[in-house]
Design a protein around this nucleic acid. Structure first.
Length: 729
DNA sequence: ATCTGCATCATG
DNA sequence: ATGATGCAGATG
């Protein structure tokens, strides 16, 4: 029987498909892309293994049409990681590979970087009599001089040599003195490395000593309060990796965080830096990806999918803000970049650092179990004092638009002392609801189980779940009353209230609405940093990693909304948010004050956070999860299903649950409708599976899911598996 | 008789 | 996923 080649193609195929070797091309190597027929289409696929005996006997086999890569595009390390994650997350292998590749490569473009024409001296040019030339052709001579002083000249630099150098160059080429060479242009950022490294404090030195590129695998949790210099720890380790000729891969949660980190790396490191994120054009992304794989880049910094960047000479992996939920992909291939980074470091036998001021409970549990080494950075640079957290009891207080009188007077005090004030409210728009004062009608989205958010500036109702927008009705659709009133607080409303309460105080509002246009976020942030705006008001955009050294007061306007979330992770998210926002205050000499407005000042979560800080909160939360049998104490997977009709998702999940083995130790919950059952016109439901051991759950999923796919009802719903879900919604 | 929409099926 | 196929009901 003829041997076949396993090829992964995107589609609902849990494993690679078998194809016969190509007619004319030489057989592809493992990790090469190939063009293959599938049905009546041609697809780009990836060779995932050596030739084998076909799994399906008597099946009509088809042939590889074309081999697209002569060299492997994915080496065995990366292909191994992707295959592992396809199995772990129970997602089709072709889709996983597609996630790992830049769009251009997915589409079958050649794996070649952009290139640039450069002009180089030939041996004849080296020996040419430049003085003789100088008299008759001074321009050519000058050009020859320039070529002799460097390895090569980029085409773009010719203009700088005065006059039209193109003709002269043409003559030099004709004489055989110069020649054009094409050189790869990866678009890398060149680190200047001009800025010196500050001396590390003992805590930093200890953490960085655990990060030894080349000395085997170790996971280091760098748990450092805001301002404690986590980045210095990264920089120290990266510099050592670079000096050893090894690459560093740095994963950050959001694009917003990349520019600052990049400029800091650029100032400090003598290294070539590649940036990989979704904001890049297809070509730029391809270049950066190839720079990582060719070894042209020393440092690769990128978002989630950068965990799949190819590495020619891997030495170190860093995950920044490891607690951040956006490291987990929330649709399709639902992988965790943080967890895969750890797995990759393990397979590469290289060190990995995970940094945060508010460690995830998962990482803390791993540290407790001895799998990660936990380093705490408690000293803040430049004698900055830790901010003081204080609860402000809202009960019975007079308020104007959600701002209590005591809060307003604290704000005034800080403003009078030339302090900057940051007000945080995690809700954009004017109000989260619009209600009829006559009959109680609520403006609800007709495609979701949710209320519209009222945006007064745009005079629109906007559903934040499905993005639907409608004009604000002039009268109540139910009773024709004109008395429609905003209910609840958003940043837009607070902004108005502040303008009334504190006229003449320059203020900026920073949320998704006020920063919609390109560059507005940076613009606002710069105004804040220069001190032009004394009042800063915003959503969680404000909480992430920006230095605001003049801020002396941070106020969290409504902590209560995070206290009673549907998700078992809501408390953890709230605690992280509070600490992250609080971290914006008092970074310079002046100690910061943090005020948290709440109607629940006795709430144990807030009490623990105020008196014991994040470590005490995390300790308590871990104990709670233990008692409740929730992650990270146990392993969890969700089977999600959705369809236009209400019953189909639940029926499918019931049918699926009915095929579960009864003798398994895996606990089954549901199926039940999702917390927000209807979203964007589709009904959603889920089935929860839990086990004490990851392996138990994995084994069950592996045995059980193929049968679930084969259920007739599986074709009538859209369904997916979420291993280690980050959100229960 | 032909068209249209939807469910079902196969893809190596 | 995506495209092919078959069938039921609608259509001038």
């Amino acid at each position: 029987m003829a041997q076949t080649i396993p090829v992964a193609v995107s589609g609902p195929f849990p494993r690679s498909l078998d194809y016969l070797p190509p007619e004319t091309d030489t057989p592809p190597v493992v990790g090469a892309r190939v063009r293959v027929p599938l049905g009546r289409r041609q697809m780009v696929g990836m060779v995932t293994g050596p030739p084998r005996d076909p799994g399906l006997a008597g099946h009509r086999l088809r042939q590889i049409t074309q081999v697209l890569d002569l060299q492997p595009l994915l080496d065995s390390e990366l292909l191994g990681l992707i295959s592992w994650s396809a199995r772990y997350y129970h997602h089709p292998i072709g889709d996983c590979i597609a996630t790992a590749l830049p769009a251009r490569l997915r589409q079958g473009y050649p794996a070649e970087p952009a290139s640039e024409t450069r002009w180089q001296l030939t041996p004849a040019g080296d020996e040419a009599d430049i003085e003789a030339l100088r008299r008759r052709a001074p321009r050519q001579a000058a050009l020859l001089d320039a070529l002799r002083s460097t390895d090569d000249l980029p085409a773009g630099q010719l203009a700088g040599l005065g006059g039209d150098a193109r003709g002269a160059l043409q003559r030099l080429v004709e004489r055989g003195y110069a020649t054009a060479v094409e050189r790869a242009d990866y678009g890398l950022i060149t680190g200047r490395g001009t800025e010196g490294a500050p001396a590390l404090n003992p805590e930093q030195a200890q953490a960085t000593s655990a990060l030894q590129p080349g000395a085997g695998h170790q996971v280091t949790l760098v748990d450092g309060v805001t301002g404690s210099g986590k980045t210095e720890v990264y920089l120290d380790a990266i510099a050592r990796a670079t000096a050893m000729g090894l690459q560093s891969l740095v994963i950050v949660p959001e694009i917003g965080l990349t520019p600052q980190l990049v400029s800091r790396f650029q100032a400090r490191l003598s290294a070539k830096i590649a940036v990989l994120h979704s904001g890049l054009a297809d070509g730029e992304r391809l270049n950066a990806w190839l720079a990582a794989g060719s070894g042209a880049a020393d440092v690769i910094i990128g978002t989630r999918s950068a965990v799949f960047a190819p590495l020619r000479r891997p030495g170190l992996i860093i995950v920044d803000e490891e607690h951040d939920a956006s490291l987990k992909q929330q649709e399709g291939f639902r992988y965790s970049a943080r967890d895969l980074a750890v797995m990759r470091a393990h397979r590469l036998e290289c060190p990995i650092a995970m940094g945060t001021a508010t460690p995830s409970l998962e990482s803390l549990a791993n540290a407790r179990a001895g799998r990660y080494t936990h380093y705490r950075l408690t000293e803040r640079a430049g004698n900055a004092r830790p901010p003081q957290l204080r609860l402000l009891d809202m009960r019975g207080q007079p308020t104007t638009e959600g701002l209590s009188a005591p809060l307003l007077s604290t704000v005034r005090q800080h403003l009078d002392n030339d302090g900057q004030v940051l007000l945080f409210l995690n809700r954009r728009g004017f109000s989260p609801t619009l209600i009829c004062h006559e009959c109680g009608w609520l403006a609800e989205c007709d495609r979701c189980d949710a209320r519209y958010t009222y945006h007064r500036g745009r005079s629109r109702l906007h559903c934040h779940h499905c993005d639907r927008e409608t004009p604000v009705p002039a009268v109540c659709p139910s009773c024709n009353s004109v008395d429609l009133r905003p209910l609840g607080l958003g940043t837009e409303r607070i902004e108005g209230a502040l303008q009334t309460a504190l006229p003449d105080t320059p203020m900026v509002r920073i949320d998704r609405d006020s920063t919609r246009q390109r560059g507005r976020f940076e613009q606002h942030m710069a105004a804040a940093q220069r001190g032009e705006a004394q009042l800063l008001l915003g959503t969680q955009m404000l909480a992430k990693g920006h230095h605001l050294p003049a801020v002396t007061l941070v106020a969290i306007i409504n902590a209560d909304q995070g206290l009673f979330g549907a998700d078992f992770r809501s408390p953890e998210r709230l605690a992280q948010l509070v600490i992250q926002v609080a971290g914006r205050a008092g970074r310079a000499e002046r100690a910061g004050e943090v005020v948290i407005q709440t109607h629940q000042p006795e709430h144990p979560l807030l009490q623990t956070l105020i008196h014991g800080g994040y470590p005490a909160f995390a300790e308590a939360a871990l104990t709670e999860r233990e008692a409740a049998g929730l992650p990270p104490a146990r392993a969890m997977a969700l089977i999600r299903a959705e369809a236009p009709g209400q019953t189909a998702p639940l029926n499918f999940l019931k049918a699926a649950a009915a095929t579960l083995p009864t003798d398994s130790s895996v606990e089954v919950l549901g199926p039940y409708p999702s917390p927000m059952e209807r979203r964007a016109g589709r009904y959603r439901a889920q089935l929860m599976l839990q086990a004490n051991q990851r392996g138990t759950l994995q084994a069950l999923l592996t045995d059980w899911l193929p049968g679930v796919s084969a259920l007739p009802m599986a074709r009538r719903v859209r369904w997916s598996v979420d291993v280690d879900p980050a959100e229960m919604l």
